[in-house]
Amino acid sequence: MSGTDRISQLPDTVLTQILSYRPTKEAVRTCLFSEQWRDVWASVPVLDFDFADFWSDDIFIRYENKIYATFFQARKKAIYVCEQSECHNNFVRFIDTVLDQRQAQPIERFRLVWQYQVKPYREIDHPVGRWVLRVLQQSPRVLSIYVQPNLINIDVPNLAFTCSSLEEMKLHIDNNTRLEVLNPVSFSLPHLRKLNLGYFKIGGNSMNDLLLGCPNLEELELYACELDLSHISCGNLKSLAIAGCCCHSAEIRVSIPSLQYLEVAVVSCQTEGFFF
């Protein structure tokens, strides 16, 4: 029969699987379709938030209005991001509302991309720290965070480094002024297989504790980090990528007998090199 809504006739489990491949903003909109779709989105185990989905016409302003804006460095033209735009407020309210309405529903994958953040927030109550903590309490398998906070550090919850359910994690905190210091109270990620850290200061003790606390780690990527360590040693690591990092030790010795893939591209190096 023509005009039949066959998608809505699918079981909720199938609808949930379909929505898990879409950004969360699109998944929430499906509640307008029908009674059946109203609560389906709240059971989707994948949450995907990108600030670019919330841009409006007032977010970018011309060069001559720069007194009211912050420079948008990623573009070649003299374009600025307006601090007075409602995009940031809408983004924060949406994520808070989604997390509130989901209540105790499990989260398998959580992805957050918040670039060009110009609205000021205080370090002690920055929304990213609050969101990450709430998500980690739901025992996710995958956590992916890339944010550009406005000239402040974000306090990454220690639970990010002790969440036993995590299998993959990406943490990039790019505030353009100073790097986050990787120094949690403890490392204990027994099931973590992939780790991608960006914009961190990493000392030798932190690296040692990290690798000891991740006994099943297979892939490690360090991007735009400041490395102050003398060696990297891991028995089961298969992939190591060091890109855009600054190295300060006299030399860095690498002992990874299971290594299958290696990429090293440093931007500043005060070492004699990497010794394998």
Results as ranks from 00 to 15, higher is better:
F71E: 10
C214R: 00
L229Y: 05
M169H: 01
Q260F: 05
D125I: 11
F161H: 00
L19S: 03
E218N: 10
N208G: 09
I124N: 09
P127E: 02
Y116F: 14
V118D: 00
R122K: 15
F33R: 12
V132K: 00
L210C: 05
R109G: 04
A250W: 07
R130K: 15
E64C: 13
K77L: 14
R141N: 07
T13R: 12
G203P: 00
I7L: 10
F72W: 13
R38D: 04
L99I: 04
A224M: 11
R178W: 08
Y63K: 15
M1I: 13
F71L: 10
S43W: 00
E123R: 15
I154L: 08
E123I: 15
E168L: 08
T177E: 13
A42G: 07
A69Y: 01
Y199F: 14
T70K: 12
F51E: 03
T97L: 12
V44H: 00
Y146I: 10
N89W: 10
L237Y: 02
Y116S: 14
V14Q: 04
N208E: 11
L10T: 06
N205M: 10
F187L: 10
A104K: 13
V156E: 01
R93F: 09
T271E: 01
N150V: 04
S43A: 12
E218K: 14
R141I: 02
S233D: 08
S34A: 12
L136H: 02
D125S: 11
W114A: 09
S268H: 15
L212W: 03
E168Q: 13
K194R: 14
C225V: 09
H126R: 06
Q260Y: 06
Y146K: 04
K201R: 15
I152D: 04
G235M: 12
S186H: 05
S20F: 03
L211C: 10
Q17S: 15
D12A: 08
G235A: 15
G203I: 02
M1Y: 10
D155H: 13
S20V: 10
C225T: 03
E272C: 11
S249G: 07
T162R: 06
G213I: 02
D228Q: 09
E26R: 12
H231T: 13
T30D: 04
R29K: 14
E64P: 07
I152E: 02
A104P: 05
D100C: 12
D58H: 07
V142F: 08
V46E: 00
N176K: 15
D39K: 08
V181C: 11
P23W: 01
W131T: 02
I79F: 04
V147Q: 01
L10A: 09
F200I: 03
T70D: 11
K76W: 11
N176D: 15
P120M: 05
R22N: 15
R102Y: 03
Y21F: 13
Q138Y: 08
Q101C: 10
I124Q: 11
E26C: 10
E168F: 08
V147F: 00
P157A: 09
H191V: 05
N153L: 08
S255H: 13
D100Y: 08
Q73D: 11
K201C: 09
N158K: 02
E64A: 12
P45I: 09
N65W: 06
E86R: 05
S164A: 15
L212D: 05
H248N: 14
P120L: 04
R134K: 14
E35M: 06
F91V: 04
P23C: 03
K238A: 02
G213P: 01
P11Q: 03
C82P: 03
W131C: 04
A74M: 12
E251M: 13
Y121K: 10
Q260I: 09
F187Q: 04
